[in-house]
Design a protein around this nucleic acid. Sequence first.
DNA 1: CCGTATCCCCGTAGATACTG
DNA 2: CAGTATCTACGGGGATACGG
Lengths: 134, 134
Amino acid sequence: MFAEHTVDTNDVTPPPHPCETWPDNGRGFRETLDRIGDKWSVLVIGILSGGPLRFSTLHRRVPGISQRMLTLTLRHLERDGVVSRAVYAEVPPRVEYRLTPLGESLRATVHALAQWVTDHHEEIENARRRYGSV
Amino acid sequence: MFAEHTVDTNDVTPPPHPCETWPDNGRGFRETLDRIGDKWSVLVIGILSGGPLRFSTLHRRVPGISQRMLTLTLRHLERDGVVSRAVYAEVPPRVEYRLTPLGESLRATVHALAQWVTDHHEEIENARRRYGSV
DNA sequence: CCGTATCCCCGTAGATACTG
DNA sequence: CAGTATCTACGGGGATACGG
């Protein structure tokens, strides 16, 4: 997938590219990436990686998400096999969401992404200010 | 960041919170994530991680992107300090894009993401089929 | 070759109100 | 509590045509 190419700058030997074996040159990649790369999925996955949570708790922990979007996001993640949904026949009703094994396998990556964003948030802010108004 | 703890089945007792290191409880995270998490950025970053490329080459390598969206994506990445743009006064004109050091620091994460998607693409497809039509 | 400028569509997402 | 239902808007993004 991502091309094999040598960089002229110094000794930057890039780590081996994992994506050479892609069937349709990235379309499938994009398609799947859209699933976990939409507006809320990564955040929800990250929060659920701390353990199972019920709907309302999740709603409180995802800042700014609407009830509707949380529902939709969870449905999509459930459909894609990343999140599982358990309904407990109680009063009051209780629904718990948790990561499936597939979802768990995303933990490290999501955390890495979150870490990067955390580490470089300021840097990006500064770059944007330097760039001026766009 | 996202909590690493294990949760018992009832979440009555407040568990150690994810996102503790974020100033505004995740909003900044989402804000920054939107930048690199839009429709094309991750793909462009991944492809540029193979080395500098000119516009037309990039255009060919990002399957399905329109000229307009490639331009916009590159501008945003440039603004955020992830990509740099070099214009060479030649005939025919040549413009090269490459990752900045900040962009390079994203390489591992982007590749991890790409790897995950590659590894689990099929699995997700299957899950979606099992789930039925939505 | 490397873009900008326009037009326009349609999906995403918010607000609000209502149910099991 | 845990969702649906509906209505609406906003803007992302494609198609196309044109400029440097």
